[in-house]
Structures are given as structure tokens and as C-alpha cells.
Nucleic acid binder design. Structure first.
Lengths: 338, 338
DNA sequence: AGACATGTGTGCAACGTTGTAGAGTCAGGA
DNA sequence: TCCTGACTCTACAACGTTGCACACATGTCT
């Protein structure tokens, strides 16, 4: 069937162990032996059997990336970055979609599928603070996002509070005093929505602007449709506002569309800012000012942390680390001075 | 370390083979033995070692999905569907990104990474007709898209010609006679661009409308930026047109934005239609009329074909099949009667 | 010369699973 | 009674790889 070490060994006139040694760059192999083996490998087109190697070594060479849904552009772009980063360190990526559902997230953490991968990069959405204990797992795990703090795991995420504060201040600096929020989550403290709201509040306070809950709209999800619905609700409330901070780009784009249909000019009447810097933010009409949260940095660091943990092989001398990526505000056409 | 068949066997007081038999639903096991084994499995939390199973059986349980780029919404949504479909038949999906680069595509076809997966679902972009021979590989392969015909492989794709013809006729039926194209590929015949152009030409001919190459704009890629650039070029040509057919949604959205900035009203002055039915087509301003190419059907059929091939295990009695998914036109706001 | 380190290569066992062949038991029919 | 076949379970040997222990050669230092 397939070419194995045995075939190569026979062709090169050495033992299979020597072939194995050559492949694994074991140093004590004579140059000419090494050459002979390499030649035989070349000639026969030998490719190592990953299953056998995994069985022996306990490593599979694959990492899992669990996220809510690839159809959400943010996660698609994140997956892109993670796959790139993983490829650079010679790992495959297996993607699992949770739909943001708590049950599926918990299931996934202890699924037999974990055996197939060396580690997991996990972006939870449905799980809450109470579920932190579930994260104490026996395999390398890196968490993205921040629904759960103080877990026993490495953590890579964006500077939600600072970035949201910066976004709000960006609007305030351009003369906006009534900044509406689209995408808040009722009572949430530690999720992205909670943190971004905190940044918003900090900015308001620093500027001496009173908080008005009437211009804060809650949504369950962060899809375009939710942004649109939220904006309809906001308009129905009939309170004044001169800017909108969408807690992500899709929310902002959905909201912006409804605003425009309702006859508001963006950015003149209402400035709009988003969060994520999706590719499409560049091509909306008007193009969307947004926060670039440092996605590729997040992917890069997550993969690096995970492979470090994998290589440390459970020797947990390094305590859980938290990495916060650099953000920056990308100014486009949807914001202007009042 | 980890719980193995041996541990379960000891706990249940049977041989490991019996445990294996229970797990694999071998029928000749007494009910009470089966129960005892199941109990032991439950108690110990046994999970089979996939590497060992792969080594023994030659199957890995994973399939690879190779596509240009997850950042392109179409492929992200396709990947979403493929992962869903694969999960239903108990397979993992490993995603590989080619960037649409021919070299990387060819490399990927013979990469040692193929050993890690039972089969490949491949959406090539850079490869051309001359590369058909490279597709004659020793593992199960299903091709998406149609840059290469008459290969020795299963093929799942959309009805490009009919759908493009239908889209064009949709515009013509609404009184448009000057339908511009955004996204054609110079000289291409068998790719999506070539086929969609053919559908366009068929529709023109059927309606007795002369072809005017001045309103056909070529692009290299199909990103938003290309749509925007193409539309600027079209406007610069200063020829009349009353509709735009973007060969995909991102092109159409990019083009629509430039149109609007230039002062044209969509759909009154210019109607715009896209292709793909991305989620965001629903939330642009105006929302985009487009062709839904049957993405989930494509994913479903591709996974099913591949698993059939995998299970047939090389017994190639079934000849290469071609499946064309159903399409339908989704009418939204970007098109109207002249 | 002897002791010792270093370089080069090998054989064996093991990773955890499943296919094959076969041993033992039991019921039913000749 | 014996034979046959079905049922139930088991031992053994693989799948292809790598860690370990060791054998042997060669060089280096007392």
C-alpha cells in the first residue's frame, strides 16, 4: 500500500530506526548514511504516517479552534488569521462551531474529539462566569474573548474597555454629546458588551456627560439584523442622539442602514462608529469608522501560547497569562465633526 | 494516563476485544455482558484513542476543505455549511487556505498533510484547465467550482450559466437594456466568470440586445475593492448603462457604493444585482437583489459524495459525478422597473 | 595500556486499537 | 447419542512509529 519506514530502510540498507533518526534530525548519523536515507526517501516518495506518529508520541499536530459561527465575518477573519499562524508553526486547524450555545460549548470542552487535537483555542459566547470551573481541563487551552475571568487558562483578548472608551472619546472630541449605544447586554459585566459599555461610561464621565439609558439599546445577538432592529427601537423611543456606537461592525452597519432609510444623514446628522474593522467596513456607504482590535496579533499570540503549552507538555511552571492586543481607531467617512 | 480498552476490560471482567466489540456494535455479545461493559465505560469515562483507531483502520475521521480564503464571505459561509454537513456524518473538517495561488494549490494536492485526512473537498481558483492531470490523485476528492472540467473526480457546483442568464433576464424583464458587467475575466471560458458571462450573453441574445464590450469591466479578483475600482473605471468610460450585474455580491456592493457616491440613485437610475446571496446582501443600502446559488445544497452534496467515496474505499465502480445545485433569485431593493 | 567519552547504528518493546482465527458453550435435529 | 451450527468470547498479531537500552567503533586523556 503506502511506503513505510521499512521500505525506506530496505532501500537504503539501514535499520528502520536509523531512517527514523534521520527524519527526526537525530544528530549522531554519519553524513553519507544520512544522504543515502534521504535519497531513498526521495526515490520512494516516503511520507510519514501521522496516525502512527500520533499514537507513539501522543501529539496529533492539529489544534482545534472553537468559535460561534464562521458566517459571522469577525470569526471568519479570526479563523483566517489563526489558520495562517498555525501553519507557520506546522499545525493543522480543525474548526468547531458552537453557535454560541452554552450546552454545545460545555459539551465541546469534554468531547472525545479533544483527543484528536493537541490543544484548543476557544472563543466562548454562551458560557458565563459560573462556568469557569469547566475550563479546568487536562489539555492545553487558550481562551479568546472575556466572558470568563480568573480561569486557570491562558487568555488572549482585545483591550475592550480602553478601545470602547477611545471610540467614545473620538466621537465626543468631534462635538457629539449624545452617543447612543447599540448592542449592550442587560446586566452583563464581564463580556465584551459589558466591558465596552464600561469604556463608554468612563468616557462619558471623563467628559462630564450624564449617562442616559434611553439611548442605550440592548440586543441579544450581534448580527446585522439586530443592529437594524435596535435602531428601529431607538428611533421609536423618540429621544435625541447625534452619534451611534455599535458594539461591533455588523451592528453598526445594520443600524446605519436603518438610520439612512429613516432620512438621517451619516455622518452629518448622526455619526456612526463600529468595532472590529471588518473588511466590509471599508466599503459600506459611507465607509465605517471603527476600532481595529488587533485581530492578527490575537491569533498570533493565541497560537504561540498554545504551542508553548503543548510543548511544555503539562509542566505547568508558567502561570496563566493574559495578553491584551493593541487596538487602533480607523477613521473613515461615517464620523465627522458636528 | 488516559483510560484505555484495557482499563475498561479489567473493570468489566472481560477481554479487551469484547470491549472493542461492544463499542463497534458487534452483534454477538450477550446483553448482560454488553451492559457491564457499557457501565464500565461510563464509570471510567473511556474515550477511544483516535490515533490508534486510525492507525489500525486507515481512516482518520477528518476531511480537508481547501479554499482560497476565509476572509471572503462566500467561502466563510461555504465553510460553515461544510462543517455543519460533515458534523452530521461524524467527520472533522480541517481548513486549508490557498490564497487562490496555483502553486499552493498544486502543492496542497500532494502534500503529506493529505495523510492526515480521509479525503479532500477542494475549491481551486488558481489552477487552470491544463492542470486537470494533477487532480488524478489516489485519495477521495470532490471538486467545487468549475475551473477544471472532465477531471477524474466528483464535481459539485452551481448552475452558473443558467443563474447568470436568469439574473440578466431578471433585469431585462424590468426594462433594462444596458446591463453592465463587473468582474469578467479576460478570455476565460470555464471559470465562474466565463460561465456567468456566457449566461449573460445568452440572455442578451435571447432578448435581441446587442453585446457592447464597453460596459463589461474586467477585474482580477472579486473583492469589494475590485468592484469599487471597476465601477470607477466604468464611469470613466462615459458610456451609458442602466443596470449592473456584479459577478458576485462583494463586487456588486463595492460597485454600488461608488455608483451612489457618484450621484446615481439605486435602483431608479441604475439597478444592481449580485451573485452569492451573502448575509450582508440583506443589509446593504439598498439591500441587494442577488442570486442564491444553493450553497448549503452544495456543501451537503459535496460531503455526501466524499463520504461515499471514502466508504467505497477506492472501489471506483461509480464514475465521476457532476451535481449542479438549484439556484434562485432573491429580489430585494437594488432592482426596480425602469 | 587502560579508562573513558563520544559517535554511529541496531533491536526490542510499546503506543491503543481492530481483524482473524479459533475455543468453548449450548440448542436442536438426525 | 452424536453432529452441526449459531452464539459468545478470547488470544494473538498486526498497523507504523519512536523511546530506551545497548553494541560496537573510534578517538582522547591519563
Amino acid at each position: 500500500m503506502s511506503v513505510t519506514l521499512h521500505d525506506v530502510a530496505r532501500a537504503a540498507g539501514v535499520s528502520i530506526k536509523t531512517v527514523s533518526n534521520v527524519i527526526n534530525d537525530y544528530p549522531h548519523v554519519r553524513a553519507d548514511t544520512r544522504a543515502r536515507v534521504h535519497e531513498a526517501i526521495e526515490q520512494l516518495g516516503y511520507q510519514p504516517n501521522l496516525s502512527a506518529r500520533s499514537l507513539r508520541s501522543g501529539r496529533t499536530g492539529a489544534i482545534a479552534l472553537a468559535l460561534p459561527e464562521l458566517s459571522l465575518s469577525y470569526f471568519a477573519e479570526l479563523a483566517d488569521s489563526v489558520i495562517e499562524a498555525a501553519e507557520r508553526v506546522g499545525q493543522f486547524v480543525i474548526i468547531e462551531q458552537t453557535g454560541g450555545d452554552r450546552e454545545r460549548e460545555l459539551q465541546l470542552l469534554s468531547s472525545w474529539r479533544r483527543k484528536m487535537t493537541d490543544g484548543l483555542i476557544f472563543s466562548p459566547l454562551g458560557m458565563g462566569m459560573d462556568d469557569a470551573a469547566h475550563l479546568d481541563v487536562a489539555y492545553p487551552l487558550v481562551l479568546l474573548g472575556e466572558r470568563i475571568f480568573d480561569g486557570p487558562t491562558d487568555h488572549v483578548t482585545m483591550r475592550n474597555v480602553e478601545a470602547a472608551r477611545a471610540a467614545t472619546e473620538f466621537l465626543i472630541a468631534r462635538g457629539r454629546r449624545r452617543v447612543a449605544i447599540v448592542g449592550a447586554h442587560e446586566g452583563e459585566v464581564i463580556g465584551s458588551a459589558g466591558l465596552r459599555l464600561r469604556g463608554y461610561l468612563e468616557a462619558l464621565e471623563a467628559a462630564g456627560i450624564p449617562y442616559d439609558e434611553r439611548i442605550v439599546v440592548h440586543t441579544t445577538l450581534w448580527h446585522r439584523a439586530n443592529g437594524a432592529t435596535a435602531m428601529r427601537e431607538l428611533l421609536a423611543r423618540d429621544v435625541e442622539f447625534d452619534a451611534v456606537f455599535g458594539f461591533n461592525d455588523t451592528l453598526a452597519l445594520g443600524a446605519m442602514r436603518v438610520l439612512q432609510v429613516a432620512g438621517y444623514r451619516v455622518p452629518e446628522d448622526v455619526s456612526v462608529i463600529g468595532f472590529d474593522d471588518l473588511d466590509e467596513a471599508m466599503y459600506s456607504l459611507p465607509s465605517l469608522t471603527t476600532v481595529n482590535p488587533g485581530r492578527s496579533e490575537i491569533a498570533e499570540v493565541a497560537v504561540r501560547s498554545l504551542t508553548e503549552r503543548i510543548e511544555a507538555n503539562g509542566d505547568t511552571e508558567v502561570p496563566p497569562r493574559l495578553h491584551l492586543a493593541q487596538f487602533r481607531i480607523v477613521e473613515r467617512e461615517s464620523t465627522a465633526t458636528a
